[in-house]
């Protein structure tokens, strides 16, 4: 346990700047927003200038709140996933590229412990950073809209919660996929991984064309598992009554925690273990 803690600490010392990239980007975004707000105020526009005017149906404000929180989460989720992909390569191959892996592997620690701590750092680290920033963003958006409109906290909170849960499983899947590629390819694992996927897709297309087979597309199959936030289906609502909207939000859990989620976890486990086996076969030259 003590060794695992030390390994996690070491990963933090090495990768904290990269792990916190979404924080830096968010701070830059907030900075730009504040400058915009200040310019608006200097030009004599009051804070209410930023408020939406017009006659909207009763539930619209809630719908708008849900949508805006979801948009924020999609943007942050996308950023977090991109950072996690880079981090996966750094965690697996960083030591090899810098020729310092020998120091870490000359200690009496099993490879399983080393790999587990890297994986936990990758998934939990990326998710915690995402969850904290997106939650703060959600609170800001929700309270602002609650102040200016009659929107309910419920919609902001559930938009965040559902996005966060969905992103968590997607993050596990995407990280495991690129973990696998990072273990397989010591250099340029991201590009090599993408090339591999494109190669397989092309091979499928050629086979389908030449042998009249009907093998389904790998990329469209994978895209099913790479959703950051799903549409609860508000468009199907007959009215914008708050209770109707709440029941739609609750029904959305079925989309988020479905058989696809189990498949995501299953594939993630296979990819992680497969990648780890390749990693264990590496030589320390």
């Amino acid at each position: 346990m003590n060794q695992c803690k030390t390994l996690l600490k070491k990963e933090w010392w090495i990768n904290w700047k990269q792990l916190l990239l979404p924080v830096w980007v968010s701070l830059a975004f907030i900075g730009v927003c504040i400058i915009g707000l200040l310019i608006g105020l200097i030009k004599g526009k009051g804070i209410t200038y930023f408020r939406m005017e017009g006659n909207f149906p009763p539930g619209f404000n809630n719908l708008f709140l849900f949508g805006s929180v979801q948009t924020l989460n999609i943007a942050l989720g996308f950023l977090s996933i991109m950072v996690a992909i880079m981090l996966a390569d750094n965690l697996i191959n960083g030591g090899f590229k810098l020729k310092c892996e020998i120091l870490h592997q000359s200690q009496p620690v099993s490879l399983t412990k080393i790999l587990s701590s890297k994986y936990v750092f990758l998934i939990l680290g990326s998710f915690i950073v995402y969850a904290v920033i997106s939650f703060i963003g959600t609170l800001v958006i929700t309270f602002t809209q609650m102040y200016f409109t009659s929107a309910l906290f419920y919609f902001g909170f559930y938009a965040w919660l559902q996005s966060a849960v969905e992103l968590f499983f997607t993050l596990i899947f995407v990280c495991s996929l690129f973990w696998f590629f990072a273990c397989l390819f010591q250099r340029k694992s991201f590009f090599m991984g993408i090339l591999t996927l494109i190669g397989i897709e092309l091979a499928i297309k050629i086979l389908n064309y030449t042998s009249a087979l009907n093998i389904p597309s790998l990329l469209s199959y994978l895209s099913k598992f790479i959703k950051i936030s799903s549409d609860p289906g508000f468009g199907k609502a007959m009215d914008l009554n708050v209770n109707t909207l709440i029941s739609i939000v609750q029904a959305n859990w079925k989309n988020i925690l479905s058989n696809n989620t189990l498949l995501k976890l299953l594939y993630s486990a296979i990819l992680t273990l497969g990648g780890s086996l390749f990693y264990k076969r590496r030589e320390l030259i």
């Binding site: 010392w13 090495i14 310092c100």
Partner: peptide
């Protein structure tokens, strides 16, 4: 090792 195997990032 014969090369400096230390981790430059620490």
């Amino acid at each position: 090792p014969d090369v400096s195997g230390l981790d430059d990032r620490l």
